[in-house]
């Protein structure tokens, strides 16, 4: 554990000296927090009262999520804000890719990998340290952004029904469980890619492909193909646990010290 903490501290000491990385880590969550608040504000201001929920301009499947006792305006707001759920889930996926994709290939290019591997650190300790160093700030920023969003809801005059929906099980599972699981998967993919390529830019670009399935979910929901509810979220979490286990296994078994030192030129 001591070695893992040392690697985390080392990574953070290096990464947080880079202003661009700091900007990436703080700017994106801020945008993802402000955008849904702005959308919610304007939908509540501009739509008036859509008391007949069946005429509200939302996909038919979504009417089940809105339930009874919710006005058309509120249902529309829930529909709109639900698109941003996936954006909040993207925060812990996008942020660590920058850090993690540089993780191994960066050490290769600066020749610091060899002295590091010459210490008594194990492969698991090295990868765990690097994964956590990339994933933790992203997870914390994701939670922080969600906290800011929750604080902003009453300020812009969001109705209690919409706030209840956002603080419900679907959203909490997504933010507190699915997000971190996705962060772990994306970080491990980025580190895996980073240990196989020679150029930090290539590592970053390949790792960024992990965002595509999530964007697919966004579009599927926008098109009304799926509606994210508790069951969908639980299934997604189950799948992510399997993906994480697979990625961690793949990362530790494929990370060959010898190949990385001798076959990267």
């Amino acid at each position: 554990m001591k070695h893992i903490i040392t690697i985390i501290k080392k990574e953070w000491a290096e990464v947080f000296k880079n202003r661009m990385v700091l900007f990436m880590i703080s700017f994106m969550p801020l945008i993802f927090t402000i955008l849904p608040l702005v959308m919610l504000y304007f939908t509540s201001q501009g739509m008036g009262d859509m008391s007949d929920i069946s005429t509200a301009d939302v996909p038919v499947q979504f009417l089940e999520v809105c339930g009874e006792g919710i006005t058309g305006t509120e249902c529309m707001q829930i529909y709109v804000v639900n698109q941003f759920l996936l954006m909040f889930m993207l925060i812990p996926v996008i942020i660590p890719v920058t850090i993690a994709s540089y993780s191994i290939v960066g050490e290769k290019t600066t020749h610091s990998l060899e002295p590091l591997l010459a210490t008594p650190i194990t492969t698991f300790e090295l990868l765990a340290g690097k994964s956590l160093a990339a994933a933790l700030p992203a997870i914390i920023m994701g939670w922080f952004a969600f906290g800011l969003f929750l604080l902003g809801l009453p300020i812009i005059g969001t109705s209690a029904a919409v706030i209840d929906y956002i603080t419900g099980l679907t959203w909490l599972l997504a933010i507190l469980v699915a997000g971190p699981l996705m962060a772990i998967a994306s970080v491990n993919l980025a580190i895996f890619v980073s240990s196989r390529v020679n150029d930090p830019r290539v590592a970053e670009q390949i790792s960024a492909l992990f965002i595509l399935p999530i964007l697919g979910l966004v579009f599927a929901q926008l098109a009304g193909v799926i509606v994210i509810n508790v069951m969908v979220m639980l299934s997604f979490i189950g799948a992510m646990i399997l993906v994480d286990i697979g990625m961690i296994y793949l990362g530790t078994t494929i990370f060959q010290r010898e190949n990385i030192l001798t076959r990267w030129k």
Partner: peptide, 24 residues
């Protein structure tokens, strides 16, 4: 090693501190 391979953004003492911890 053939190349010093130090962490250039970090101070000299921080570099050594990291390795001292890794060597227990």
């Amino acid at each position: 090693t053939e190349s010093p391979g130090m962490y250039e953004r970090l101070s000299a003492s921080k570099n050594l501190d990291i390795y001292a911890h890794l060597y227990d």
